Simulated scan of single mutants.
Amino acid sequence: MGNKAFEDCDSLTTINIPNSVTTIGDKAFSGCINLPSHIKSDIIQRFGDKVF
């Protein structure tokens, strides 16, 4: 998932990340005020800076 993929998308309340996603880029969910600020996954190998 690329850098700033969903930045400032305040309509997001949940996300479902498929197993094929192994990297979440920098600031991918930054500014998503209605999204929980945690992702629990054994699949994700790399989280970028300031993901939330």
Results as ranks from 00 to 15, higher is better:
1 M>C: 14
1 M>I: 10
2 G>Y: 10
2 G>D: 14
3 N>L: 10
3 N>G: 08
4 K>E: 13
5 A>V: 05
5 A>S: 13
5 A>M: 07
6 F>R: 06
7 E>T: 10
8 D>M: 09
8 D>Y: 12
10 D>L: 05
10 D>N: 14
11 S>C: 08
11 S>F: 13
11 S>K: 15
12 L>S: 09
12 L>P: 09
12 L>H: 15
13 T>H: 02
13 T>K: 14
14 T>V: 09
15 I>K: 07
16 N>M: 10
16 N>V: 14
17 I>R: 08
18 P>L: 15
19 N>F: 14
19 N>Q: 12
19 N>T: 14
20 S>M: 01
21 V>T: 04
21 V>Y: 03
21 V>I: 12
22 T>A: 09
24 I>Q: 00
24 I>N: 00
26 D>F: 02
29 F>Q: 01
29 F>T: 04
29 F>W: 04
30 S>Y: 00
30 S>E: 10
30 S>P: 01
31 G>D: 13
31 G>N: 07
33 I>S: 06
34 N>E: 01
34 N>Q: 05
36 P>W: 05
37 S>I: 01
37 S>F: 11
39 I>D: 00
39 I>A: 01
39 I>N: 01
39 I>L: 05
40 K>I: 09
41 S>Y: 02
42 D>E: 11
42 D>V: 02
44 I>L: 09
46 R>A: 09
46 R>I: 11
47 F>P: 01
48 G>P: 07
48 G>D: 06
48 G>N: 05
49 D>G: 03
51 V>D: 00
51 V>I: 15
52 F>A: 07
52 F>Y: 15
52 F>I: 05
52 F>R: 08
